[in-house]
Amino acid sequence: MSARDPLLQVRGLTHRYGRQVGCRDVSFDLHPGEVLGIVGESGSGKTTLLKCVSGQMQPSEGEVAYRTRDIGTVDVYGMTEARRRMLMRTDWGIVYQNARDGLRMKVSAGANVGERLMAIGERNYGHIRNEAVDWLERVEMDIGRIDDLPGTFSGGMQQRLQIARNLVTKPRLVFMDEPTSGLDVSVQARLLDLIRGLVGSLGIACVVVTHDLGVVRLLSHRLMVMKGGRVVEQGLTDQVLDDPQHPYTQLLVSSILPV
């Protein structure tokens, strides 16, 4: 095992809803610090794939293996639920499309950022407070609003808060599900810029699911294109976007404005 081994290995992952197939036979590796974009229209299976890969939904078939900091590579669905939940709130992060799914709406911004620290045993209010201030600054939020409830923030600020809440434990892997959709274009651009900066400077590996090719062009190193639950094309982002091989990818690329 070395630093060059993949952080995440997905093999033959299939998920069915009854007789409906969510995603079919997906395999990929993700290396430390690498950003993988998954694009496709709604119903293509990309969100199903993200849920299965991020420990939120057990796939019907296939394996998800993760290289932990301490005990080597483990089967994500083979470990106890306690361990998996611990992994998910320490070494992983999940940024949801809807901030309400990822934030605790009834407690302040500061408590949202501090929660993970408290969950892993931090018992010094001053430290927690300082960390919260620090992270709010890093996601470029007004620290004067640390005690405000998430509901009082704009959509873009809620996403920043979600990111701060996830990054406070310095995770090595973050999953993002349509992190910028539903935001104004100018807000989107600034948020993407922030994400790119943080991910790059902290060396975080990311899986980003989106229907927006602009997002993957800006963020991801590699790209997977999904259609009907299958991966129809994958490769380096620039390569796929500039020279799409699959007709569906060609259609996708031609139908958007250049970023």
Binding site: A82, R85, R104, G110, A111, G114, E115, M118, I146, D147
Partner: peptide, 19 residues
């Protein structure tokens, strides 16, 4: 309780102090 996930308890105490 089973998973000893008590972070939320301290979150509520944190909120008290913050407020």
């Amino acid at each position: 309780h089973a998973l000893e996930e008590y972070g939320v308890m301290h979150v509520s105490l944190y909120e008290d102090i913050a407020k």
